[in-house]
Design a protein around this nucleic acid. Sequence first.
RNA 1: GCUGAAGUGGUGGAAUUGGUAGACACGUUGGACUUAAAAUCCAAUGUCCAUUAGGACGUACGGGUUCAAGUCCCGUCUUCAGUACCA
Length: 978
Amino acid sequence: MMYDFNTIEKKWQDYWAKNQTFKASNTSNKPKYYVLDMFPYPSGAGLHVGHPLGYIASDIYARYKRHKGFNVLHPQGYDSFGLPAEQYAIQTGQHPAITTETNIATYRRQLDQIGFSFDWSREVRTSNPEYYKWTQWIFIQLFESWYNNDSNKAEDIKTLVSKFEAEGNTTVNAACDENIEPFTAAEWNAFSEVEKQEVLLKYRLTYLAETEVNWCPALGTVLANDEIVNGVSERGGHPVVRKKMTQWSMRISAYAERLLQGLDTVDWTDALKDIQKNWIGKSVGASVTFNVIPTEQSDEESHTISVFTTRPDTIFGVSFMTLAPEHELVSQITTAEQKADVEAYIEKTAKRSERDRMADVKTISGVFTGAYAEHPFSKEPIPIWIGDYVLASYGTGAVMAVPCGDQRDFDFAKHFGIPIPNIFDLSSIKGSSENSPPSEELEEAFTSKDNVKIANSDFLNGMNYKKASKRAIYELEQLQQGEGKTNYRLRDAVFSRQRYWGEPFPVYYVNGMPQMIDAEHLPIKLPEVEKYLPTEEGEPPLGRADVWAWDTTQSLVVNNELIDHKTVFPLELNTMPGWAGSSWYFFRYMEDAANRDGVFATEDALNYWENVDLYIGGSEHATGHLLYSRFWVKLLKDRGFVNVEEPFKKLINQGMILGTSAFVYRVNERRDVFISKNLVDAFLNSETNEEASKRILAVTGTETPTFSKVHVDVNFVNASDELDISKFRNWRAEFKHAKFIEDKIIVLREVEKMSKSKYNVVNPDDIVADYGADSLRLYEMFLGPLEQYKPWNTAGITGVHGFLKKLWKLFVNENGLKVNAAEPTKDNLKTLHKTIKKVEEDIENFSFNTSVSTFMIAVNELTAQKCTSKEILEPLLVLISPYAPHIAEELWSQLGHDGSISTVDFPKFEASHLVESSKKYPISFNGKMRFTLELPMDMSKDEIEKTVMAHEKTIAQLDGRTPKKIIVVPGKIVNIVG
RNA sequence: GCUGAAGUGGUGGAAUUGGUAGACACGUUGGACUUAAAAUCCAAUGUCCAUUAGGACGUACGGGUUCAAGUCCCGUCUUCAGUACCA
């Protein structure tokens, strides 16, 4: 019987589907385990061989956990809202829902043939109204919440209203907008409804704000900072400009501290945690207010400059201030003499693109405004400069410059000849020369906070960083010119998109104020439009919908003509961004599809599955998806809808699979002539150049040929890197008459990202057809460590495919099953148990590549041992089944078992089978292994030494010398020194 | 620049606590089977020297610790990823 993988794989995939083998239950005596993949966006191109890598790893783990007695939830779905479907719709007029449906069908077919153990009954699609109903519902919860810094959680907005009614807003400690005017209870109660709503909007966790956004004219949409790369849109590379727009924002900054703290409770890699920590960017310090000294030129108003500093202890070292050129105060404080210079500088910096400013960090530039601020303590005047090293978008857009304590301030001061007063007691700095005078001219800024005492600083003298900071903040508070402050880099996230193919907001507008539609009327379905482009007036695509108004009496979406602003109101035209649906989908899977109607998931389901035990996906989501979903989970927890603080307990980023591109060389002087890598190499090598030149000359007629690399489709190249010339000629018209000098064309190989344009994309469909899903699964794992980037080369798959054939032959020969009840030999048992041990350790460590090698070794050994014992081969099959489930199921059933192998207990390792009676000792001389010697395990140290020293090879090695030292490590090694 | 990860044969990679470097595969070479090819099987395969026996070198580079270093320490270089003057 042959290993007919195509038949076998189809058979078992059908069996699993028919028997719902992998359907998870929400009631079980077994412990739960939730294994999740980052769900895919179903693109039109379908899967390539790199996409399933993470899915295969998580599938192996899920199957392993089932063998280990867990009730496993392993679902899959689609992140099916997104820009590519919309752009396709713009081009073709085809409704995105239709293309999405088609693409999902392709994805499903491709996923099914790889043999994943997904519970498809729980599938989700973010673009499905039954799903986005709950995305809209969560949006309403965000709108109806405010963040109470005192209780450190989000609360119902009603509790805030009660506080306002009773005490006004001065006692409220909330995460909110910065420019809120204080009001009393009486004032609040006297506010009109619109005024009240305006105030509340400044406190809500999702709010409308006029924000300067990154507007991309080509895409007709706003982009988040992380969607812009080098000043152009990440998708499509279109230019981006700044534009003011009213947008929905998410007050994620309210959760900055909890998002940071929560990282300590999850099992993620340090690299990933560091990325999130940097993104959140916490810095502890103080805000300090400087009064600007009025001049004759300045207007009547008195101005103050507020700065944030992490070093309030260095306040006496301030010798100037720097404002960002864009700072709003610049135009108001600049003196008449300096006006021309300042304006010229602002114009100059405005022209410089961000890329320029980045590329050239070394250039120091700035200009004096002519104005001075007053030092809060010394009352000395401090010159105010502007400089582009200060960023308008971070902190307050202004810094108090302490040149002796900050390298950038130091460089700036040095460059412009500004004094650099020293406020560090240099004799306290370890390693610096003794008694160095405090006023000594410094070579560079002293930036360390450790082991240094403050000097020349009035009441801070002699204090260390910690003490001085505390005291400085205290004194600033006394003057009402500052306070302790913690700053976060994390910005609120813009949540509006000017697109069609996304979740509509459950929002309508009364007198310009947003109103939520009652949750009972959800979902608000996407309206039909005749075109998917922004309107001529620049409104989002939903502005084209005719039926897009909210009738408050009927609670229905009605025709726009009925808008009267009394009972019928216009609906929100923006849609939600891509990350909305993916920020909570892991909860949706927890609920059995049959019970999903009334809730986003029932309490029982949420309590049972809690959160994701293992999450596998790409590292490109490190700051987007993984931050936003943590934020939403914390909100849902605060509002009592879920019980967990973090969504993903353990997270692994799988590395990318790269393509192995293939090239031939084209002779530039004779464009129809192509030659191989070997000939080019020969030509470039001085020793072989003459011969190679002759060959090339003969065909091209040129003595000084030059070459260019041409991508060829990797599917035209065999395992020996040899090009199939006829396939190449038939590929494209321009190659039809391609001439080759050699019979064998060896291609040049280079590793590049897998992409259509590089002709190195390998389709899993082809691999499955030629070698089977089990081979694909094994090979993807065999390529290397899961987290690592590694190149795909189809040539290598014959190795794992051959392994599966050998495995098959271990069970089956021409006459059928050859497994019998033979008593296992000692060697058989040893092979089996060392395999059990290694594979179990490997899976627990997510080291799937080494377990594939382990299987190969086991099968090689058992084949050599001619093992036919059921007692050995059955457990071996269970070990392999998470990796190669189809062949395992088939052989399992041939062994006479009913039902699936997938829930059979994992074999138990028994150490007794690995106990050795002897050890092959490596005998080293001066650390170099010269020969091995087999000695009994229980031999004592002395006996080993005696035996080794008496050995003829030892005597030969020593050649009469007397060893200085003999190291014997029983069970390990013998090393003779001398 | 900073942070993180990595650098091992022709290739992918292995070596879990310092103890036989190169497991397992691919590729290559030779052989068996075959009219032939495919498939399958066997053998060799880090580099260099040597007929053999054997020897020298060898885990990016330069030092160090140790009886013993791919593994630990110091310095340098390179690659990849993240981040972008964060006050």
